[in-house]
């Protein structure tokens, strides 16, 4: 029954086994491809229904229209062209609990979960994920501006 040092065999076996711990910050840790980490936003797909905002348990996500002044215009053929509403998404990573309910709520699939889990930062302002709608022409203008600088 009771045998002292009964764990000895296991100790020897483990001594020669590869360690199951990792030197984390020096060696990158991997997560499963299903892992829910930072939420990514695709402004091209968003229609601004605000369902994600309504269902967010942590009040972390904001969807703001960036062109509220734009009016519907009448085209050359007399048809009314509706405003192309453009949105900006702000996710406060200090509030987000990574439940990905917003991903489930979004029926346009504008939001998705990514596997970026290393989000720590010493700067508070970098902890807000901001993504704005940008059309192709504006992208070009931005890059030109950068080049000039």
């Amino acid at each position: 029954m009771a045998k002292p040092l009964s764990v000895f065999g296991e100790l020897v076996r483990n001594f020669f086994k590869k360690a199951s711990t990792q030197g984390y910050p020096f060696k990158k840790a991997s997560v499963d491809s299903n892992f829910r980490a930072q939420i990514k936003y695709d402004p091209a797909l968003c229609v601004g229904c605000q369902l994600c905002v309504k269902n967010c348990p942590a009040d972390a996500i904001k969807i703001i229209q960036i062109n509220p002044e734009d009016k519907p215009q009448v085209g050359a053929d007399g048809k009314v062209i509706p405003v192309h509403r453009k949105f900006e998404c702000k996710i406060d990573l200090t509030r987000c609990i990574f439940c990905a309910q917003c991903v489930d709520s979004c029926f346009k699939k504008a939001l998705s979960s990514s596997q970026d889990f290393e989000l720590a930062s010493t700067d508070r302002s970098s902890l807000v994920y901001i993504k704005k709608y940008q059309d192709a022409s504006q992208d070009k203008a931005d890059s030109e501006e950068k080049e000039q600088k």
């Binding site: 199951s20 299903n34 892992f35």
Partner: peptide
């Protein structure tokens, strides 16, 4: 140490199933 190491198997299974190790949601 042994039991927590072996617990990692369950944690990994839960992570693969649900997307998180603790709060499965």
């Amino acid at each position: 140490m042994y039991s927590w190491r072996d617990r990692e198997y369950v944690m990994d299974a839960l992570e693969a199933l649900s997307g998180n190790r603790v709060h499965y949601s």
